[in-house]
């Protein structure tokens, strides 16, 4: 705050980034495999930089406090909340957004209908595991991060990976169904999951009410 601090002493304290008159510093971010040079405020979170500077709008602000998961991205392969990540501290990190999954190597381009989609994306698509889909990128990336370290996760591990992800529209059962498919877990029957026919549906034989 005082003028004394504006210009740091030579060499002291390692590297330093000094904001310009506009309060910004240059930062090179490696996003989806490509370096991007951006000028960010030193207090700016990565989410805002991705959306506003890089126009990567698949990450979204739902809460701004790390509770909803809509802003999730992969940082060095791990799912993190970009709303809690200072952009200036991301130099050197491998950042990946939902946009980076598409055709971006890995499982992309495996063919089939959803060519260019990852296995997880395809499962979400096939199960229609979304309503408004504001939360969807976050759920998909959370599962991608899990599958990258554990290709055969348990159902409990999948559920744990989805903690910190809210779907206000309520697509949880289909999200889980998609996740089970992508993770190779057996699917589960529903409690009277509205088979729609004429009249009140009966209980399908394989869907025992009660557990």
């Amino acid at each position: 705050m005082t003028a004394l601090h504006e210009v740091p002493a030579e060499g002291g304290g390692g590297d330093v980034k000094v904001p310009d008159a506009d309060g910004r510093v240059p930062v090179v971010l490696l996003v989806n495999g490509a370096p991007h040079r951006v000028h960010v405020r030193t207090t700016e979170v990565l989410l805002d930089v991705l959306r506003e500077d890089l126009k990567l709008v698949g990450a979204r602000n739902g809460c701004g406090v790390g509770m909803c998961g809509a802003c999730t991205i992969l940082r060095d392969g791990r799912a993190v909340s970009s709303c809690l990540t200072l952009a200036v501290l991301c130099e050197g990190a491998d950042l990946r957004t939902i946009e980076g999954l598409r055709g971006g190597g890995g499982e992309g381009g495996e063919g089939g209908e959803g060519g260019g989609l990852s296995r997880v994306q395809r499962a979400f698509l096939e199960h229609r595991a979304f309503q408004c889909s504001y939360c969807t990128s976050g759920f998909i990336l959370a599962l991608e991060a899990l599958l990258a370290v554990d290709s055969h996760p348990t159902e409990a591990a999948v559920r744990e990976a989805f903690s910190g992800h809210l779907c206000r529209c309520g697509s949880y059962s289909r999200i889980m169904a998609a996740a089970r498919q992508a993770a190779g877990l057996p699917s589960r029957g529903g409690l009277a999951r509205g088979a729609v026919t004429g009249g009140v549906t009966g209980c399908a034989p394989d869907e025992e009410p009660g557990r």
Binding site: M1, H5, P8, G12, G13, G14, D15, V16, K17, V18, P19, G23, R24, V25, R41, T42, T43, V88, L89
Partner: peptide, 14 residues
């Protein structure tokens, strides 16, 4: 104004 950001590499520097 926006804060400066230091990236020390040793505890002593920090």
């Amino acid at each position: 104004s926006q804060p400066l950001v230091f990236f020390p590499t040793t505890v002593a520097e920090a």
